[in-house]
Nucleic acid binder design. Structure first.
Length: 424
RNA sequence: GCGGGUGUAGCUCAGUAGGUUAGAGCGCCAGCUUGUGGUGCUGGAUGUCGCCGGUUCGAAUCCGGUCACUCGCCCCA
């Protein structure tokens, strides 16, 4: 075993892993495009402020999980050092881009993005320090129908990945800002009365994030949570109506969901709809796709008040669950023997590629070795060009599935290897 | 960041009353087959036993540290 390892929480992605992940992003791009989403590729790092402001100084992400650094490349012409951060999530960067480019002229905006994100957490299965997400954001629509659309899109994607029966949609509403603030107060009041019964973690949450106590895994906490006031009790009429519409819409298009009163969101800018698609097959990393509405975020970043809703999916987690992947095209292995044949083979290879074939030229070793490699590469044909063939302007085409072989004139080769399995 | 488990060949793993040259399967290489793969037969090589240090006449095995992975917590996709 080599001492040279990738940095903690990172890994090399190749082979089946790469194919499975590609299947997820391919399906995502296809599905999102069918809902009118267009690609927005934001930089992989931003000014630290972009993440710090909306997430809050005290949030776990900002205080201990961000990869931040100071760039001071004076040689490159930078006058002042810049505080930069590798993106820990997509939403803040997308909203920054929306503001930077004056996109409020063009509402509503539907953006799809994908790629790596970085968080310095303790690695676990399905949780990496460099991980990959697919991300969808819909900006400029305050109506609950938008929430239905974007959840429907997620549901369609999950089904295309064959995960319809492996995930459960947990759905909740945090209400509007007023309702949410009210609920928070109600919870603090209630939990403060039971403070001495709460776990250490939850006493801390009482200050930092009281809503999080609701999904505590501590046994003692759960007993107290069971009698805690419900979000729905604190919601005003507008918020109730909003949530009713979302649920009715999902029912109308047949998206199954479970109203989960204990599903919450950490950041303050979240409101109304919150949802998570959860599986039981990945241990503690059960959330494979999650999102919600964030009507206050863009304004908080200094842009024009613009409502937004979106979600992010973990590509690693989705890939691990679905295990789908397209195999590469079966290649034609071209085997020129000798110098003159090698030159001729360049031309034949390009002819076959022009006709749509995948061609690999194997120029080294004896024929036995090359046939062996052809077999490992799962080639459909081996094309042999030796001195005998060269003299007669033919190649020997061997069908590796059937074991049969025939001689084919140069001019007929491209057609022979692209005729779809038919013997030449 | 906190707590538990694991680390032996490319891969999956055996290997404890500490004892000489550390094993299996798969894969890999070679030959049977000098211009022909897959299945078969024969043979071969796998390796700082994660790393560093300690105990011991002697450590893959016991102890400490460290790194990585893994399970849970925190948090989250």
């Amino acid at each position: 075993m080599s001492k040279l390892q990738p940095a903690r929480g990172t890994r090399d992605i190749y082979g089946d892993d790469a194919r499975h992940m590609r299947a997820v992003t391919d399906a995502f791009q296809r599905v999102a495009a069918s809902y009118g989403f267009e690609e927005l590729a934001t930089p992989i790092f931003e000014f630290t402020e972009v993440y710090k402001r909306p997430l809050g100084e005290t949030s776990d992400i900002v205080s201990k999980e961000m990869y931040s650094f100071e760039s001071s490349a004076r040689e490159a012409g930078d006058k002042e050092p810049e505080e930069l951060t590798l993106r820990p999530e997509f939403t803040a960067g997308v909203c920054r881009s929306f503001i930077s480019n004056g996109m409020q002229q063009n509402l509503p905006c539907r953006f799809m993005s994908w790629g790596p994100a970085f968080r310095r957490e303790r690695p676990q299965k399905g949780r990496y320090r460099q991980f990959h997400q697919i991300n969808a954001e819909l900006l400029g629509q305050a109506n609950p129908e938008a929430d239905v659309d974007i959840i429907a899109m997620a549901w369609r994607l999950l089904n295309e990945l064959g995960l319809g029966d492996k995930v459960v949609l947990h759905l909740n509403s945090l209400g509007d800002q007023e309702s949410r603030a009210q609920y928070r107060d109600d919870l603090v009041t209630y939990f403060s009365e039971h403070k001495d019964e709460l776990s250490e973690d939850s006493i801390r949450r009482l200050e930092s994030n009281p809503l999080r106590i609701l999904d505590s895994k501590d046994e003692g906490d759960r007993a107290i949570v069971a009698n805690a006031p419900l979000m729905s009790a604190s919601m005003n009429d507008e918020s109730k109506a909003f949530f009713e519409t979302v649920q009715a819409g999902l029912s109308a298009i047949g998206v199954p969901f479970k109203h989960d009163e204990r599903l919450v969101r950490g950041m303050d800018y979240y409101c109304h709809t919150a949802f998570e698609f959860i599986t039981t097959e990945l241990g503690a990393q059960g959330t494979v796709l999650a999102g919600g509405r964030y009507d206050g975020l863009i304004e908080q970043l200094g842009g024009p008040a613009t409502p937004g809703i979106g979600w992010a999916g973990g590509i690693e987690r989705l890939a691990m669950l679905s295990m789908q992947g397209t195999q590469p095209d079966r290649p034609v292995m071209l085997m020129p023997m000798g110098e003159a044949a090698t030159i001729k083979a360049f031309e034949l290879a390009e002819d076959m590629r022009s006709a749509g074939a995948t061609v690999i030229s194997d120029r080294t070793g004896n024929l036995k070795k090359r046939m062996n490699r052809a077999n490992k590469a799962d080639a459909r044909y081996a094309v042999i060009l030796g001195e005998n063939e060269l003299e007669n302007s033919v190649v020997t085409v061997k069908n590796l599935d059937e074991g049969s072989q025939t001689e084919v004139p140069f001019s007929a080769l491209a057609a022979a290897v692209t005729s779809g399995g038919g013997e030449a």
